[in-house]
Design a protein around this nucleic acid. Structure first.
Lengths: 132, 132
DNA sequence: GGCTAGAATGAGACTCATTCTCATTTAGAA
DNA sequence: TTCTAAATGAGAATGAGTCTCATTCTAGCC
């Protein structure tokens, strides 16, 4: 882990990320912070998110639309998510089955350095209740 | 399937996609076409790829860098890929195991309209041989 | 507490994929 | 052939994300 200075900006991003409860985009996070009176710059939000992700304090995924989404994340190990398309809420998943499938399939086809992108998107119970 | 006119541009994109043997970006495809003397416009390449994808003649995935990649694809049903990070070559995968896992997990958490993004990336045997 | 090196920041310019606009062209039915 | 809506191409517009650089601020040192 690289040396990091503690700045209020970095702390603000961390706090906003925790407060978001689910996946949010860097842009959303920046807007939220500005709306609450912060003068933080967009580039700084990106920088803070990148370093938090690097340090394992945050997880990032690619939304189907191509945007990068971030979420504060306790469990440090590799894991996957089930994300609500509507509100961004996420559940961590135990994907042992799939991990095994991935490495087996990779090996079978003679591929090395297998990485996998596995994410589930849906509409959570709460959001469905809201819409009805 | 929407009505489509047959234009030489649409046909050119289809042909270039088939000729590519693997996943390619819209930009690459456009460049290839221009290089071979075509006057096709970039927007048209995007439009053609979008409609081919819609009609099930092509598959698209998001590269880890965020770019959209396309590949001509015979089998029409839903399926997944194992893609070579180096040359773009792809294998279609039978992902029954994972499909089942995805819907089971979704249901368990009370999520509806589950979609999943499952892609494997690696380095194929041919590319590893080349590098060595 | 003050000093200083260099890390972090903010504004805005920039990149790059993708989409949009709109005038022009063209496929295909009549 | 004629006609009309669909398709095209050029380039402007968009939007996420990165980069630059002058300025500010953290943290170790006195």
């Amino acid at each position: 882990m690289k040396p990091r200075r503690n700045t209020w900006q970095r702390e603000a991003v961390r706090a906003a990320l925790v407060g978001a409860h689910g996946f949010v985009s860097a842009q959303q996070l920046h807007q939220t912070l500005r709306d609450s009176g912060s003068t933080i710059g967009l580039a700084t939000v990106y920088r803070a998110l990148a370093s938090l992700t690097e340090d394992g304090e945050a997880d990032s995924i690619q939304a189907p639309e191509g945007e990068n989404l971030f979420m504060s994340c306790g469990s440090t190990g590799h894991h996957h998510h089930l994300i609500c398309r509507s509100c961004g809420a996420a559940r961590e998943l135990d994907a042992t089955v799939v991990e095994e499938w991935a490495s087996k399939v990779g090996a079978e086809h003679g591929f090395a350095e297998i990485e996998h992108v596995i994410d589930l998107f849906g509409i959570c119970a709460a959001c469905r209740a809201k819409e009805a």
